[in-house]
Design a protein around this nucleic acid. Structure first.
Lengths: 347, 347
DNA sequence: CTGAAAGCGCTTACAG
DNA sequence: CTGAAAGCGCTTACAG
């Protein structure tokens, strides 16, 4: 490997400005207080030397000496910059970049993390994790053990997406799906619907539970009667809709909604004329027969930005105070009224 | 700011394993040679202690002690992760991520760089540039002075995109547009076209010069006679085409091609029936009336990956050898035959 | 007001 | 075969 090219150091600047290296450090960091008082004249001289030499402090040395680095780690459990993952990660990364820009942080992507069992590992022999002041974790699925370890080691981090796989209090910024699901159900009820089908996937995620909770409480309150169907049973969907006399269908996400529409149309059921359809997830860009799909707008960029904010609070607070911080936050998704929930046809 | 939580260090590991801290370092880095010979037994003991304590070396300290960090900086002159810039940066970042994964590098995005005059600055008071072993530069436009400075300081870097704004030898990986432009002209000639219009923008970039060179040499050789039009003169385009009796139109990029098609169609000129159209740039996703636009496929991800490769060579070579390295590379764009260059209509 | 010194956690000659 | 020591470039008490 190449010999590290000799760089300008504070000692050099000190020599030029005719002061001690300590003074250079003090000026560089704008230190000024009760016990440090450097005359403006001296400061100016040092600044000039710094300017002339285009000196910048070595971040590694700063870090080693105990300062923070203004570097936020970004860990994704899958490649984040591939075309396929852009759909999910794109808005998140965008939010992170914007927030980082605002607070003056650089972003360290742990792309080198080795892949084991199809997912990246955060902790490995040469992890550069500690180079960052803290870390943002992204991914649909996360490793509980790694989360625990981060908590144990008191390393500042925030997960994007609600986490409940661990005992430990994991800081996160996630999304609340209960409220918008309720809102969509209310809308259906207001449009005279009484019987619904919920087409869901089989993943037990916190957001899936949210939707389920909202649906169950609506059922319990007798506002809308639900029949459930798994995503694997698309073939039986039209039959279920008919048997249940459902006039509205909620799908767990937009892709599933499209599949459902396809299946229903194929069985001679018109959407939304016979059966209204809505997705309980992001619907941006999804249309059915030219109609904007009813569903949510999920502010993923805001989630990411807020995650960075929480991380910043953690970094700025002494570890003893972490417990009193509000580090588990939920943001609401916004309802997209769309055009695929319409008034129930009178028979 | 939070007190740096106490971390496990090599000293601690040494204590546990009953060896010196030096030995821990040696084992950790798999050092073994003529003057270093640690018995497997000792190594094993140390490894166990490392494992048990889930110890990882502090990258800041490693860096300070002169080792490389396996961190590649990524500097973009604009925000790279915004939806608008994804079109351009997306494939590049994807290529970089893949290459980084392969060589085991982490990626440090300099998002904190302050914006001056609408563009980010790489050098500033607290640039974390030196934390990286080297840096990839991305952006349509780059600052010549910054490039010079990087060269002067012997900091390993590679620009994505050809650079010719400086005296100094700037390492880059760019694209050759001469060859594919020639190929497209050949194609037009083969399809009996004799007279063409070139609709271009007004940016003097290396790639713009490539296209121009190919067009001028074709003109000089009498293979295709060109009339030129600026992008701002779309209104006069149909007139120019008629006056010049052009049967094929080359546009500098796909968007311009679309504008041109729109303008021609509006003036009663059919494309490609009356006038064939091609873009001298990436055409992925562009269609005209259902037809795949003729143009190029630009391997942007490969460009980025190759840039990382060159960077790696720089990092691995002593500075004295840099001059003998092949650090200015051009990759060829591939021709997309498309469907908008057709045989010239016989009149 | 400013400097000499210790220390951050590592690596690497240099001695044993 | 292995350890004590110097040094990487910084920050920050602690003395003057």
């Amino acid at each position: 490997m190449a010999p590290k090219p000799r760089r300008v150091t504070q000692r050099e600047i000190a020599r030029i400005a005719g002061v001690s290296q300590t003074t250079v450090s003090l000026v560089l960091n704008d230190r000024d207080g009760s016990n440090i008082r450097i005359p403006e004249e001296t400061r100016e001289r040092v600044r000039e030397a710094i300017e002339a030499a285009t000196y910048v402090a070595d971040p590694a040395a700063r870090r080693l000496a105990g300062l923070d680095n203004q570097i936020v780690g970004v860990f994704t459990y899958e490649p984040a910059l591939s075309p396929e993952s852009m759909d999910f990660y794109g808005p998140l990364l965008n939010g992170i970049e914007r927030a980082a820009e605002q607070v003056g942080c650089d972003l360290l992507f742990f792309t080198s993390s080795p892949v084991e069992d199809g997912t990246r590992r955060l902790f490995h022999r040469k992890t550069r994790l500690r180079l960052a002041d803290g870390c943002i974790l992204l991914g649909q699925q996360m490793d509980g053990a790694e989360l625990e370890r981060l908590v144990d080691e008191r390393f500042p981090f925030v997960a994007v997406g609600r986490r409940d796989e661990t005992e430990a209090k994991v800081p996160y910024v996630g999304l609340d799906y209960v409220t918008p699901t309720r809102a969509l159900i209310d809308r259906a009820v207001a449009l005279d619907h009484e019987r619904a089908v919920y087409l869901h996937r089989d993943r037990p995620s916190p957001t899936a539970r949210d939707r389920r909770a909202a649906i169950e409480s609506a059922g319990a309150e007798g506002r809308l009667t639900f029949a459930l169907s798994g995503a694997e049973d698309l073939a039986g969907l039209a039959g279920l809709v008919r048997d249940h006399r459902a006039t509205v269908l909620f799908a767990e996400d937009a892709f599933l909604a499209e599949d459902a529409i396809h299946a229903l149309t194929g069985a001679g059921v018109r959407t939304p004329a016979d059966v209204s359809v809505a997705a309980l997830a992001e619907v941006r860009g999804h249309r059915s027969d030219g109609r904007v799909l009813t569903g949510f707008h999920v502010p993923r960029d805001e989630v990411a930005a807020e995650a960075l904010e929480v991380l910043h609070e953690l970094i700025a607070s002494p570890v003893e105070d972490w417990d009193s911080l509000d580090t588990q936050r939920l943001l609401g998704a916004e309802v997209e009224p769309g055009e695929t929930i319409v008034e129930r046809a009178t028979r």
